[in-house]
């Protein structure tokens, strides 16, 4: 994102090549996002708008826009595809955010239950006539009931976590899945455009 934001117009394409190459090394699957329907639609609409705008260069002026969008999509895709909860926990541990992995695990497991609690709480308050007392009072009652339910549930989850030994200190974080030979090969191939561009700029050909 920083590369996309900071690159000047003549640096956009080299930066795009480098980001694509790096993303390919980190996570090859992220490159598929460049052929996704969403990104292709963005590219076509950008080119169309630039052609209609009458800017010098016409639709070709959309190139840097598309390249910047591509950098964001591919770079973020590499993060989303590669990052696992375990990797995020390791990262959070390095910046002293302890317990992030367990908190994320609890959050992932509780999403549906919380959604159900939120709906049930609202229906219960409505049946008890809380909504007749005015929207503001109903909202306050709802917030207190829902947040109270969350705090009560947190106590139950904590007891369950302790009984399963989840609060043990010094537990090892599982290592990330190793990349296959094919992954590495595709990752190396992704470097070729960047290398070619660098050699061209250096006057090699």
């Amino acid at each position: 994102m920083a590369a996309a934001a900071l690159a000047r117009s003549h640096e956009v394409w080299p930066a795009f090549c480098v980001i694509v190459a790096l993303s390919g090394v980190v996570e090859v699957r992220s490159l598929r996002r460049l052929t996704g329907r969403g990104f292709l639609a963005f590219a076509v609409v950008s080119a169309g708008l630039m052609a209609l705008s009458g800017e010098p260069g016409g639709w070709a002026a959309a190139g840097p826009l598309v390249a910047r969008g591509g950098m964001v999509v591919v770079g973020f895709g590499a993060l989303a595809d590669r990052a696992s909860p375990a990797a995020l926990e390791a990262l959070a541990g390095r910046v002293r955010l302890r317990g992030f992995g367990l908190a994320l695990g609890i959050a992932l497991n509780s999403l549906d239950a919380l959604r159900g609690t939120a709906t049930d709480t609202w229906h219960a308050l409505r049946l008890r006539g809380a909504t007749r007392a005015g929207l503001r009072r109903a909202a306050r009652l709802y917030a207190v009931a829902l947040l109270g339910a969350v705090l009560t549930r947190a106590d139950a989850v904590a007891v369950a976590a302790v009984s399963r030994g989840c609060d043990r200190r010094g537990e090892r974080i599982p290592a990330a899945e190793p990349a296959t030979v094919a992954d590495r090969l595709v990752g190396l191939l992704a470097w070729l455009p960047a290398l070619a561009l660098l050699l061209r700029r250096a006057g090699a050909f």
């Binding site: 994320l104 959050a107 959604r115 904590a158």
Partner: peptide, 23 residues
Amino acid sequence: MNARQIARLGLFGALWGVVEISL
């Protein structure tokens, strides 16, 4: 940080997530 604190962080994070996703 004990398990109770971590559970509270996780559940309040989940509630924010539910708000973002559903609402």
